[in-house]
Structure formats: structure tokens, C-alpha cells
């Protein structure tokens, strides 16, 4: 647990020349991406753009054969355990045990990260309080609504104080107010805790003006920069326009 102090100045995520193919079908094509601490990077892309593949590679579900991924300066292949220790993940599907309580789910995660019971309970309280879920810790996950489950999952991903938080379309299937509250919570994390965030989505209204925006289309990065820069470069006024300009325009 804990932050990798000696590597504080290193980028939270560095991806260099990353390519990946399923058989002959290219899913990622020479992707380069760097995320600094306290940076919120929104990865925008239509379905099938390669977002899930990218996440699978960063979380080491698959090995990258071409290119390199480093987390806090730790190479994901050579120093995978150190790299994974700096990473918090919220997967697209819910990964909580519905039959167990919130507390049991979180303690399980804390144990996987080697925290003692005392440390774990302390961190669980801090994170659940932040998401206003502490009073519900003894309830079974089954009893929570979708938005609350998501909050618990984000709290869980933060227990071991990761440097980089990966979120794979965390707001899919949530109602408007739950979505807004999660978007606001994550942006507050970036600001308050200086954590780096990589947030995959296809919903443009989840993006704040000073976020870093990366548009992925057919396995290639089409735009990479602060929102205003992307708008300027594409000569568009809204993210929606920029997005369709870059994805539909290129495809035709």
C-alpha cells in the first residue's frame, strides 16, 4: 500500500507505441498516451474503438507485445506487482459480491492489497465517508441501487491509495443525478488528492473544461489535449462536434 514516493514525479501512466491485435484485426495501433499526477484524462471513443482492449492491457489481463506501458515509472511487464500496487480500477461491470455486505467486500479488497484489519477499517471509513456511504456499510450490496454500488466500487478502488484510477464507463446504466454526482466526485478526487484518472466513456457531458481529452477511434488516437486545444485544432465549438468531426469524418 501507499504511494510510490520515489517516483512521485514520474507520470502516473505512460503508454508508448502500443499496438495490439486479435488475430488479424487491429484493436490498437501505435497508441501513445501520458497522464501526469492530478490530471483527469477522459478517453472518448465509440463502441469498439479499443477502449476495453486498452484497459485490459493496462490491468494486465493481456500482455502487451508491441509497445510499453508503465505505471508510476514501473514497467507493467517487468515490475508488474509494483505497477499494479499503484493502480485502482473500476470495471465496467459491477464486481462487488451481492451476497456480502459493503464492509466485507471492502475488507476483501484491502486484504488483497496487504492491509492489516486496523489499517483497512480506517481507510474504509475514510473512503466511505467521502462518498456518504459509511452508514450503509453493514448492508448487503444487493440492497444498494446502481449509483450507490458504483460509489462503493470507487471507494474500494481508492482504499490502497493508488496513483492512477482507471474507470471503464462507470456511469453506464445510472440515472442522471447518480451520474452527475459520480462525475463530480471523481473530479474532486483529482483536485484534492492529486490522483491521476483515466476515464473511459462515450458520454460527452461527463467532461469538464480543464480535463485532458483523448479521442480514440478504430484503435488510433485522433485527438489528445486539453478540451479547449482539441476544440481549437478541430475548429469546432463543442466536444460533441469535435467528436463527430474526428470519428465520422475520418470513417467516411
Amino acid at each position: 500500500m501507499g504511494r510510490c514516493v520515489k517516483t512521485m514525479k514520474k507520470p502516473a501512466l505512460e503508454i508508448e507505441q502500443l499496438s495490439f491485435a486479435y488475430g488479424k484485426k487491429k484493436a490498437l495501433d501505435h497508441v501513445n498516451l501520458t497522464i501526469q499526477p492530478a490530471e483527469c484524462c477522459i478517453l472518448l471513443g465509440p463502441n469498439g474503438a479499443g477502449k476495453s482492449t486498452l484497459f485490459a492491457l493496462i490491468t494486465r489481463l493481456y500482455d502487451c507485445r508491441e509497445g510499453r506501458i508503465a505505471l508510476c515509472g514501473f514497467d507493467i511487464k517487468r515490475e508488474s506487482l509494483k505497477a499494479l500496487a499503484t493502480l485502482g480500477v473500476v470495471f465496467q461491470q459491477t464486481t462487488l459480491d451481492p451476497d456480502l455486505t459493503v464492509l466485507q467486500n471492502l475488507r476483501y479488497h484491502a486484504a488483497l492489497h496487504g492491509m492489516s484489519r486496523k489499517q483497512a477499517d480506517q481507510r474504509i471509513q475514510q473512503e466511505l465517508e467521502r462518498f456518504e456511504m459509511y452508514h450503509r456499510r453493514k448492508e448487503k450490496v444487493r440492497q444498494l441501487n446502481g449509483g450507490h454500488k458504483r460509489r462503493v466500487e470507487i471507494a474500494r478502488a481508492l482504499l490502497h491509495k493508488p496513483q492512477l484510477l482507471l474507470l471503464d464507463e462507470p456511469t453506464v446504466g445510472l440515472d442522471m443525478s447518480s451520474r452527475q454526482s459520480i462525475v463530480a466526485h471523481v473530479h474532486a478526487l483529482v483536485k484534492d488528492d492529486k490522483i491521476a484518472v483515466l476515464w473511459a466513456t462515450h458520454l460527452v457531458d461527463e467532461i469538464y473544461p480543464d480535463d485532458k481529452l483523448v479521442i480514440l477511434h478504430q484503435g488510433k488516437i485522433k485527438a489528445n489535449g486539453v478540451v479547449s486545444d482539441v476544440l481549437q485544432k478541430t475548429g469546432t465549438e463543442t466536444i460533441r462536434e469535435a467528436f463527430s468531426h474526428l470519428t465520422e469524418g475520418m470513417a467516411s
Partner: peptide
């Protein structure tokens, strides 16, 4: 694994 909790296990920083 389909539900993802195997993935949670697999991203734990242990061999």
C-alpha cells in the same frame, strides 16, 4: 470472470 470479480482478483499486486 464475466462478472469481473476475477479481474479484481487478478489486478491485486500479487503473483
Amino acid at each position: 470472470r464475466e462478472m469481473g470479480s476475477m479481474r479484481i482478483l487478478m489486478v491485486a499486486p500479487l503473483p
